[in-house]
Design a protein around this nucleic acid. Structure first.
Length: 118
DNA sequence: CGAGTGACCGCAA
DNA sequence: ATTGCGGCCACTC
């Protein structure tokens, strides 16, 4: 089988896969997700997928590199912050979380194997 | 099939 | 330190 498109997971599939595997208490940045999905500059795409992706996925655990919450989250940032606090996240008054502390890196996990398995 | 858009990121004054 | 702009690539209509 040549490198068929069916063999590789779509960008959206990878993003949703990673997001669905983000452990509680951790967060990931759009840029990192994009980079892990093959396009480091497709951070915006991740946001677009988040809007049209599966609402059951923990998109609230996905924040921008500033650690700030998304601006178009359903229910506005207050609702987003409430969800994060409900899971034990420390959200600043500026609606920002300590990315350096909570940033989750799938490196060394089976999940990365799946992404590279193609 | 084509064009527009965006839950972003990085860089330049 | 802040502000503004462009770029970039996948998704939707």
């Amino acid at each position: 089988m040549a490198s068929s498109e069916a063999d590789i997971l779509n960008f959206r599939q990878r993003v949703e896969l990673l997001v669905s595997h983000i452990p509680q208490g951790r967060v990931m940045t759009y840029g990192q997700l994009a980079a892990l999905c093959g396009s480091a500059r497709a951070a915006r795409i991740v946001g677009g997928i988040a809007h049209f992706g599966d609402p059951k996925l923990p998109w609230h655990r996905v924040v921008n590199k500033q650690g700030g919450l998304a601006s178009g989250y359903p229910g506005d940032r207050p609702g987003h912050r409430a969800v994060l606090e409900a899971e034990g996240y420390t959200v600043s008054d500026e609606y920002r979380v300590n990315v350096s502390e909570l940033l989750w890196r799938p490196e060394g996990t089976e999940l990365t194997q799946t992404l590279f398995k193609v």
